[in-house]
Design a binder for these strands. Structure first.
Lengths: 165, 165
DNA sequence: GCTGAAAATTATGCATT
DNA sequence: AATGCATAATTTTCAGC
C-alpha cells in the first residue's frame, strides 16, 4: 500500500454525519453533540475540507426547478475530437453527469429536462450536432433513489487507532 | 402548467453560486458580495433550504477514502421482490447510486470499491445473493468528470420579474 | 417579505501544552 | 494536533415597515 491510510477517526465521522444534514451547523453544536472541544471540531472541519475529503456545498434539487425528466445517454466519441467534444458537453447545463467509459470512445452522460420535447430536441438535434459525438443509446430514468451526495465510507474507514496497516 | 413557477430571482442565484463553493460562507460575506441586505440573504438561504430547493450538505470524496474503482451495474429485479431488493441494496454502503429504469424490472446502480477484488466479490457473490436480483451487465467507469452536485439550473430559471407564465 | 438594532452565539488569531 | 482565552464577526431574536 503506497497510499497513506485514511487519517480519519471516530470524531471525524461524527462531524461528517452532522455536516451532511446541515453544512452550516455551528461547530459549537457539533462540539456539544460529540463532547469534543469546540476548537477541535473546527480544526477537523477545516482539515477535511481543505484536504478535499469532504466538500461543503449546496446541491440544487432539479425537481424544484422543474427538471423532471432524466435520461441516461450512451455516446461514442471520435478519439481525435474527444477533448473538444467533452468540453462542449461540459458547457451544457442540461448535463448532470459525464463519465468516461472503458473503451476509448465510450462516454456516458445524464441529462435533465423540463419536458419531453426538450429531451427529444437534445437527443435528436443538440447531441448529433456536437462534432465527433454519436448517440449509441439512451434510457429514461423514472426515479433516482440514491445519488453520490448521500454516500459515506464504511464506518471502519475511520480508524479506531488500532487498524493501521 | 399546474406547478408553481420557480419563485427564485437573481439574488437567489448569486447566493446559490456562493454557497456552492462553500456552504459555510457567512451570510454577511454574501451580503457584501451581492449588495443585498445581510438579513435578507439569511432569509433567502433559509427559504431555499427549507423548501428543499437546495441542500446544504457535506459530500464525501470517495477517492480520499481509497474508493478508486467505480462500476455501473445493470440489474433485472423480480417485480414481486422489488421493494425488498431495493431496501437490501440501499443498505449497502458500496452503492453510490440507485435508479429505477423504464421497464418494471430494470434497476441500475453504481458501486465504488477500494480494489478490483472487492468489486468482483460484489458482482459475483454479493449481488447474486440478493433475492430477486440478476446482474444483466456492468461497465467499469474509469473517470467521472461531472456529477449532480455541480449541477445548476439555467440562469433564466431565476426569474427576472418579467417571465412569469 | 425586507430591514434595523441589541443580545446571544460563534469564529478567529494567537499562544500554550 | 488539541485546547484555552481574548477579540472580532456573525447569527438570532424581536421588532417595525
Amino acid at each position: 500500500m503506497a497510499r497513506t491510510p485514511a487519517p480519519f477517526d471516530e470524531l471525524d465521522y461524527q462531524i461528517l454525519l452532522a455536516l451532511r444534514e446541515n453544512a452550516r451547523q455551528p461547530a459549537a453544536d457539533i462540539a456539544r453533540l460529540t463532547g469534543a472541544n469546540e476548537r477541535t471540531v473546527r480544526n477537523r472541519i477545516d482539515r477535511m475540507a481543505e484536504s478535499g475529503a469532504i466538500r461543503l456545498t449546496s446541491i440544487v434539487d432539479p425537481h424544484a426547478f422543474g427538471y423532471v425528466n432524466t435520461v441516461d445517454i450512451f455516446l461514442e466519441v471520435d478519439p481525435e475530437q474527444e477533448q473538444a467534444a467533452i468540453d462542449n458537453l461540459l458547457n451544457r447545463q442540461e448535463i448532470t453527469y459525464l463519465a468516461l467509459g472503458q473503451g476509448t470512445k465510450e462516454v456516458s452522460i445524464e441529462g435533465r429536462f423540463k419536458d419531453i420535447a426538450e429531451m427529444r430536441e437534445f437527443l435528436g438535434r443538440v447531441l448529433p450536432a456536437v462534432p465527433g459525438v454519436h448517440v449509441t443509446g439512451y434510457a429514461l430514468v423514472p426515479r433516482i433513489i440514491r445519488n453520490i451526495d448521500s454516500w459515506l465510507p464504511k464506518a471502519d474507514d475511520f480508524a479506531h487507532l488500532d487498524n493501521e496497516n
